[in-house]
Design a binder for these strands. Sequence first.
DNA 1: TTCATTTAGTTCACGTTGTAGACTAAATAT
DNA 2: ATATTTAGTCTACAACGTGAACTAAATGAA
Lengths: 387, 387
Amino acid sequence: MTQAVRHDSMRARNLEVVLGAVSRGGPLTRAALAELTGLTKSTVSKLVGDLLDGGLLAETGPARAGERGRPGVEVVLSGARVASLGLEINVDYLAVRVLDLTGGVRFAARRERDNRGSRPKKVLAELQALASEALTETHRLGLEVAGAVLAVSGPVGDGVLFSAPNLGWQDVRAADLLRLPIPVELDNEANLAALGELWFGDGERDFLYVSGEVGIGAGLVVNGTLFSGARGLAGELGHVVVAPGGPPCRCGGSGCLETFAGQEALLTAGRASSVPALLAALSRGDTAAAEACAAAGRALGVALTSAVNLLDLDRIVLGGVFTQLYPWLSGPASEVLSTRLTGLRGAPPVLSASRLGGDAATLGAAGRVVHRVLAEPAPFLARVQEA
Amino acid sequence: MTQAVRHDSMRARNLEVVLGAVSRGGPLTRAALAELTGLTKSTVSKLVGDLLDGGLLAETGPARAGERGRPGVEVVLSGARVASLGLEINVDYLAVRVLDLTGGVRFAARRERDNRGSRPKKVLAELQALASEALTETHRLGLEVAGAVLAVSGPVGDGVLFSAPNLGWQDVRAADLLRLPIPVELDNEANLAALGELWFGDGERDFLYVSGEVGIGAGLVVNGTLFSGARGLAGELGHVVVAPGGPPCRCGGSGCLETFAGQEALLTAGRASSVPALLAALSRGDTAAAEACAAAGRALGVALTSAVNLLDLDRIVLGGVFTQLYPWLSGPASEVLSTRLTGLRGAPPVLSASRLGGDAATLGAAGRVVHRVLAEPAPFLARVQEA
DNA sequence: TTCATTTAGTTCACGTTGTAGACTAAATAT
DNA sequence: ATATTTAGTCTACAACGTGAACTAAATGAA
């Protein structure tokens, strides 16, 4: 149900509106903000004053426009008070990243480490060490950490990682195993990478991010918001049916996308022992490797056709190993998309490789906390006033 | 961007909250509303007073609770002021329905008519006559018509019906061809039927409505809201790929769901000349007809598997001709769903037949106008105060 | 029958918040 | 120097929700 509005929530909302406008619209003067939000200059002045006091905004000095009239003083997001922590567990590394409110990276670390088959407890202990390091550094910088989000690859619901095909884990409450002084939230890597791409990459308001790892996941962004379905399990692109009579899949079905374009299938077909080996083979012109990628690309094209028909996408970003394999995958995939989709909807969706690569997930994870602060700045201001 | 809140929009929002609470929570006293919304009794009293004056709420007399204390006066939605018009163009009929704010049917008419191949102008002229009749009757009842929505089967965007496979139409601005004294909005039949099922049938907060007509469309409801994708073209279930090498499809691809479970495919495989003929054959135990339905059911199961994996559905409602074919389709379809989905997500989604049948679309169309009034009652109240 | 008790709804002085316009500040143009 | 233009602040004011006191209307016990 929509919440009733009272005076305090009216104020909270307006603070949010001003902060949001600044975060989207770069440096803005109070006058410009009044114009943008529809609030009066005096109200905007008060709101901006509170946000400045709270350390969420900062003045950048006079805006020298060279035009007539008194130049306005521009305000921008301030990175001086609030920070957020993004964490990621991947097959072969652990990663941490601290962002300030402006989206600036304040700390980043990555520990290369083969997590395949390691027990959750052990991996999370190591991650906790890394996170503590990040927190110490953040406090040293005088920043207050507003929250943390942990990215794992596999379906997540209600704080539980149901399965992680790359790690061999099942039903792990990963965030609860971390002992940190701030609350940690758990989410799917594909979803968070999609958000990373939205906020820091070339994602527009609407696109699908495809994460090719051992399994294949996807994060869907519609209207600038993540779509996660009824129970948060949306985006299982890997088990979209590509050929009903195809190879059996670990999900119990057969002919899922994963059986054609999952890492295992790719390496087997390409006769390579690892992704780097596959890439090496590709760059020296190995035909088996190239044909393996082409086949995977065609399967991906079929699965994406279904996705586009259901979800009305006009942009698809390929991430994970697909980013590196992009030159060999994208041709066959977009050919399938064109022939199957142009009939009904004019132009087929645009395919592109992720620009952020492996950083997308931690950026999205930390970014989610940043955006939560931007969406609800009131508590941070109240705390200041108490002091 | 989120809009800034001012005194008038605060009031508008609170009116909306109270009205929404009444529309969901049946008859409620002012005291109960205060409890529910978190507003004080005095505020609720004022808001309810305005809504009563505006004719959107009505008092039902004292709530005889038999308990101690003064009994509260319950208020309910009032059907006495505002009405809405739902229109539908189907292959073999035109339909009109008028609902009041309470969801009560005030007028309904259906003109049986074979629209296959008729020119848009002609069909819409007939529909306009039907709609005018409905409007006259509505005015006679003293109701003010807040708006109208027209349902057509085929993808719709920006007021244009891009293609209607059942009618043979292309790129028709159907709503603009109607000359009515109220604005008419155009939307997809599957989407509107999904909303009809949500508001008047057994749709819960999350489900997929599948509309089996000549083409196969779908309407997705998530969290009580219609999901329509970036450009409003989501839900093209008919062109989800079921078998990449399958029969060619009018969309340019091959092996789409429509080539297995579309009306044409069904009738050819079942050796029947029409849907009634197919049903007759089925009920007398014709094996070709039964096998045709089973095959369609399996194909539907495959397409729905992809949809569930992408969208995280736990409930699917079959509408259109699939409602009548349900007994012969549902077994094979849900068998495919179970074997392909139980591995990853425990229980497979629940399949059911639409309870509203052919009424879903007009109900959803008119219901959408009703819900718009409930979501924004302020203009109706202002108009009263002017008088 | 009477009166205490309980719950519903209204009234009104008050607090919070945004508004409008006057006013001050700081730049450019003439 | 002075007019003009735009930015930002200040202040009286209005809109709206709040909260406590108050009235209304029921039940239950003496």
